[in-house]
């Protein structure tokens, strides 16, 4: 068992003036170095949870610990430095007037000396493949490029955790692929923990673990294989299942032999071929 980098214990939260709980008795742990996907229908509390992890909301009840810091006013800036967030709308998180200014924004806030800053801005942009765009203004960039700049801004602070709140949902397929490839690569290069909130099944199915939120509570947690086994149940929650799972289901109805629920097309193709045709 790896050590926990985040632990959340019986957390409740309501928005001011609301009677319904946006988060109800949520408990979960995140292990150091894992890739955790959080899925759930619109309004299930995903963003609320994400903001809590960054000290933008505080729980009404229960405890949150992040990188050994309890979530309290006095530690919130330490936490923000260790947990970087990328939000959904590429435009509304781009603070700088140019790419390099935007990457530097977080560094400036944390009082990093100028020489270190210059180095880190270059290095981070290099790592997300945006070094050629140093002086570009945001309205000349595509959505995917803006999100990669946002990621550069996060990694420039050398965080332990990176949290993506539907960071790819406003992008076209290529932009989405660029962003995910970038995050995957970064995770491999250093011991990053990734939490990704998403509606994209392909993205979720490549995570180490999935947590399903429903109406503010944890509905299920498990490996992608375990979660997508739920099939009909997920569809009832307003979610979807990946293509290979759907196809297996239909093929089984047509008397094909498919041993287990494969999540990758490659495995399913092989299984389909070896157990049904190659005899």
């Amino acid at each position: 068992m790896k050590e926990n980098i985040i632990s959340i214990n019986h957390v409740h939260f309501r928005y001011p003036g609301q009677t319904v709980y946006a988060l109800k008795d949520v408990s979960l742990n995140v292990a150091k170095g894992e890739w955790l996907a959080i899925v759930g229908h619109n309004g299930s509390g995903k963003s609320t949870l994400a903001k809590m992890l960054n000290g933008l909301h505080y729980p009404e009840e229960g405890q949150v610990t992040i990188c050994n810091f309890p979530l309290k006013d006095e530690f919130v800036w330490d936490i923000r430095r260790r947990l970087g967030m990328v939000f959904q709308n590429p435009d509304n998180q781009f603070v700088g007037t140019t790419v390099q200014d935007d990457v530097a924004f977080g560094l400036e806030n944390n009082g990093i000396p100028h020489e270190v800053m210059v180095e880190r801005v270059k290095a981070s942009l290099q790592r997300v493949g945006m070094l050629d765009f140093l002086n570009q203004e945001p309205h000349h960039l595509s959505g995917g490029q803006k999100q990669r700049v946002a990621i550069a801004g996060v990694i420039a602070l050398q965080p332990d955790i990176i949290l993506l709140d539907e960071a790819t949902s406003m992008l076209d397929p290529r932009g989405r692929e660029e962003v995910l490839r970038t995050v995957r690569q970064l995770k491999e290069e250093q011991d990053l923990t990734v939490i990704s909130i998403t509606h994209d099944l392909e993205e979720a199915s490549r995570a180490d673990r999935i947590i399903v939120l429903n109406k503010g509570s944890v509905y299920r947690e498990g490996t992608p294989e375990e979660i997508f086994q739920l099939n009909e149940e997920l569809i009832k929650l307003g979610l979807d299942v990946p293509f290979p799972v759907k196809l297996s289901e239909i093929l089984r109805l047509q008397d094909f032999e498919i041993a287990s629920n494969y999540l990758s097309e490659e495995e399913l193709v092989r299984e389909l071929w070896t157990s049904n045709f190659k005899k």
Binding site: R80, G84, M85, F87, N109, V154
Partner: peptide, 8 residues
């Protein structure tokens, strides 16, 4: 929100 999250 984004600015606060980035330590402003």
């Amino acid at each position: 929100v984004a600015m606060e999250a980035r330590g402003y």
